[in-house]
Design a protein around this nucleic acid. Structure first.
Length: 301
RNA sequence: GGCGCCAUAGCCAAGUGGUAAGGCAAGGGUCUGCAAAACCCUGACUCCCCGGUUCAAAUCCGGGUGGCGCCU
């Protein structure tokens, strides 16, 4: 049994295609989206509504509290059993999402060296970066794990810290713990291929729709519930901008413009990421049924 | 009609005689526990046009064109 992966840039119609294919193939959807996991973040994340889910079970949505920290490893830990269960029950897992990092964690045996994050260690290295500079931090990594250091730019503090963290916690180099990208199960990956201009236009329309649907109210509600402004989920596009805008008394049209801009930049990064996806099949956009048809025939090959 | 100011990449913009900062956008890329995040790379053979001064001009002078402001 093969899994189906519906990936690609945001605002590209993944949700509809995934539901349609799940219906046709007799499968269930497993979301691979770093923001859909949070309860209460619906409008800004374009969380699929009950109608959009069309009766198909959707997993990995609303599995985390909005104030909590959720990371790839949490995702991997929760989603993998779901996929395995579907496979054993003969249901096609339709992995749908735009978070390539999450998708990879599910698709490949990533392992992550089994080294969990340690806030105190991270803070320690962050302090060093602040006090001695990024170059100095990078030099420290070069001393213990030259291979990892060579692959990282000194400015990429986040990753330099992680490499240092792994070394400190395990005594082993991160470069020695790299796993080979071996798929855990066979899969077919597809994505809609929109011309750039059209993609950007869709993003614009989608953001407009979010404001009409009450994005600002959703954010205010979250804040009123006591979700901190700096919570992980509030860093999502659409949330951070509204929070900023609310604080500075900015017009909604301005918030909207910034969100559109950030979403476009995000979409471009996704495009870059998915270019490397193994055997990704690009679908002609426009006709959902035609696309679903094509996916099903590709799946049966 | 007169006077003043301005004209540098798609946009904002520094540079005021010595061989074009920076930011944003755009494009390309990285990605193994914060990934809707973080990070990297790329851009004017040329500074509105014409002429002049000078070894040397985006920078000075004259004229033109365009924009802005003030005055009559």
């Amino acid at each position: 049994m093969k899994a189906l992966v519906v990936c690609g840039a945001t605002a590209t119609g993944k949700t509809a295609l995934a539901a349609e294919c799940a219906l046709r193939l007799g499968g269930e959807v497993v979301s691979a989206d770093s923001m859909l996991v949070y309860r209460g973040l619906d409008i800004g994340t374009a969380k699929p509504t009950a109608e959009e889910r069309r009766g198909v079970p959707h997993h990995m949505i609303d599995v985390a509290e909005p104030g909590s920290d959720f990371s790839v490893s949490d995702y991997e830990r929760m989603a993998l059993p779901v996929v395995n269960d579907l496979l054993s029950r003969g249901k096609v897992p339709v992995l749908c999402g735009g978070t390539g990092f999450y998708l990879n964690a599910l698709l490949y045996r990533s392992g992550f060296g089994g080294t969990p994050a340690d806030p105190s260690v991270r803070e320690k290295y962050m302090r060093i970066a602040d006090a001695e500079g990024r170059e100095a931090l990078h030099a420290r990594l070069s001393a213990v794990d030259p291979e990892s250091a060579a692959a990282l730019h000194p400015n990429d503090v986040k990753r330099v810290v992680r490499a240092l963290e792994i070394y400190e916690l395990t005594g082993r180099k991160k470069s020695d713990q790299r796993d080979l990208p071996i798929p855990r199960f066979p899969f077919l990956a597809v994505a809609f291929d929109y011309p750039r201009e059209e993609l950007y236009a869709r993003i614009g329309r989608r953001v407009d729709a979010m404001f009409r649907a009450g994005l600002v109210r959703e954010v205010q509600g979250l804040l009123a519930r006591g979700i901190p402004e700096n919570a992980q989920c509030m860093q999502g596009i659409g949330y951070k901008e509204v929070i900023e805008g609310l604080k500075n008394g900015v017009l909604q049209s301005t918030m909207s413009d910034i969100i559109k801009q950030n979403t476009r930049n995000y979409a471009k990064r996704q495009l870059t990421f998915f270019k490397r996806m193994q055997g990704l099949k690009l679908l002609a956009p426009g006709d959902l049924n035609a696309a679903a048809q094509e996916v099903c025939s590709l799946y049966d090959d």
